[in-house]
Simulated scan of single mutants.
Amino acid sequence: MATRTLDKFVRRYTTLSSARDTLVHQRLVLLSPAKWDDTNDVEFMELYRAQAGAKSVLALCCAMASETYHHWRVFTQGMEGVCIEFEKAALEAAVRGHGVIAGPVDYLRVRDLEALTPHEARRLPFVKREGYSDEREWRIVATCAEEPRLTLPIAIDLGSITRLVLNPWMPPVLADNLRAIIRGLPGCGRLKIEASALTNSDRWKAAGKKIAGAA
């Protein structure tokens, strides 16, 4: 899929329980970045909070890249993994306001970062090291000025969801049951639900058999 097409969507890799919360309550929940694995990221979020004079900063991370093994293994929990795909423009419209900003992450080398000035401090939540560039991350970031917070729910329209992708390791019978359960939720009756074939593609295997003369 071309990058131009990919840029129309953002994908939220998360757990089944988090996805259910999104669908049932029609919201996304921004969380504190304090426990993120990348301590560079944690430090930059804290610097941004201090520079903005805020009590807390909260975030939610998505990806503009097509699915990869990395996304499923790093950002989800095995068979509990789900990917919610959003139409980016619709999601941006939903989260606008509430002290919320959203946009793509810039991937820099250390020397590029060192060339930035204090006038560019607003970029801190949207900067990562170049080694993460394949993620093509897109973030929603909020500052809370009045009181410290650990979570911030933001209402969304379920119409901004283009599809739900189930993880590659979910057995078909469980995937079928989950489809029925999700489509029984209010507003989800026509939601497109697919099972990822990343690690188990009949089409891929058939092509291999043809090459090997086993088709």
Rank of each mutant, 00 (worst) to 15 (best):
V100H: 07
V173A: 13
T39I: 10
H71T: 03
L185D: 00
S56N: 07
S66K: 12
R179T: 11
F44T: 15
M170E: 04
T68H: 06
D157C: 13
L164E: 07
G159D: 05
N177M: 11
E80K: 15
D37Y: 03
P186Y: 02
S196D: 01
M170W: 04
A50Y: 08
A89F: 11
R190Q: 12
L91G: 04
K192E: 11
T162W: 02
I181G: 01
R96M: 06
E80W: 15
T22A: 13
Y132D: 02
G184F: 00
D21T: 14
K192L: 14
N177V: 09
R163V: 03
T151D: 01
A215Q: 12
Q51F: 11
A50D: 07
P118K: 07
E46Y: 04
H70E: 05
A50M: 13
T5H: 10
H25E: 02
Y69S: 04
T199K: 09
G81W: 13
L28Q: 00
R111F: 14
D21F: 03
E67W: 04
E135F: 05
A142S: 12
S18P: 04
Y107T: 01
G184V: 00
E46H: 13
D112E: 13
L108Q: 03
E85M: 08
T5K: 10
R149A: 01
P168V: 00
R136W: 09
A59R: 15
T117K: 12
L6A: 10
V100P: 06
F86L: 06
R179K: 13
L185I: 05
G103L: 02
L116W: 08
G78A: 04
L60R: 11
T5F: 11
H25Q: 07
E46N: 14
A2K: 13
C61N: 08
G159I: 03
P171A: 14
S160D: 01
H25M: 05
T162C: 09
V127N: 07
R129Q: 15
D38A: 09
T117V: 06
N40L: 12
N200T: 04
A54P: 03
G184A: 00
L60K: 11
